[in-house]
């Protein structure tokens, strides 16, 4: 079942208010997904980064969310949980009439792994 919080990642700390949030996450390199992505060569699947962004948004907004559209999501560096054990998810969430515009990134220090812009809907 797809729910990554407390399995694929765990929350180290979170801060923010209103529309801007920062989540510091620890990555679990022994999560089952790495058995298949890829055998003997653990690389965090890009789609798990997208799900991680979604789950952080859900935590920030206290709501389940559907990813209705992604304008652009760029994976600028490979993320490996054995080399990079902690990441920061930065969120900027703008409420619209019927949905939220989310601009997010996944970074560690100076390194950017993922840049995301999309529309999420309350379920």
């Amino acid at each position: 079942m797809l729910q990554l919080n407390d399995k694929y990642f765990s929350v180290v700390s979170k801060e923010g208010a209103d529309n801007t949030f920062k989540y510091r996450l620890h990555l679990n390199a022994s999560h089952e997904v790495y058995k298949g992505h890829f055998p003997g060569n653990p690389i965090s699947p890009g789609v798990c980064s997208i799900q991680t962004i979604r789950e952080c948004c859900e935590d920030a907004l206290h709501n389940r969310l559907t990813i209705r559209s992604i304008k652009l999501c760029r994976f600028s560096a490979l993320l490996t949980p054995t080399r990079c054990t902690e990441i920061t998810v930065g969120l900027s969430i703008t409420p619209n009439a019927n949905d939220y515009t989310v601009v997010a990134d996944i970074t560690n220090g100076d390194e950017t792994f993922v840049s995301f812009k999309g529309t999420l809907e309350r379920q």
């Binding site: 890829f38 060569n41 690389i43 890009g46 789609v47 559907t66 990813i67 209705r68 559209s69 992604i70 304008k71 652009l72 999501c73 760029r74 994976f75 490979l78 999309g118």
Partner: peptide, 17 residues
């Protein structure tokens, strides 16, 4: 070869999952 997603653009979920 092993393939990685570099970029996703204009993803649209049309209706229900």
């Amino acid at each position: 070869p092993v393939g990685y997603i570099g970029e996703i653009k204009n993803f649209k979920l049309a209706g229900r999952l």
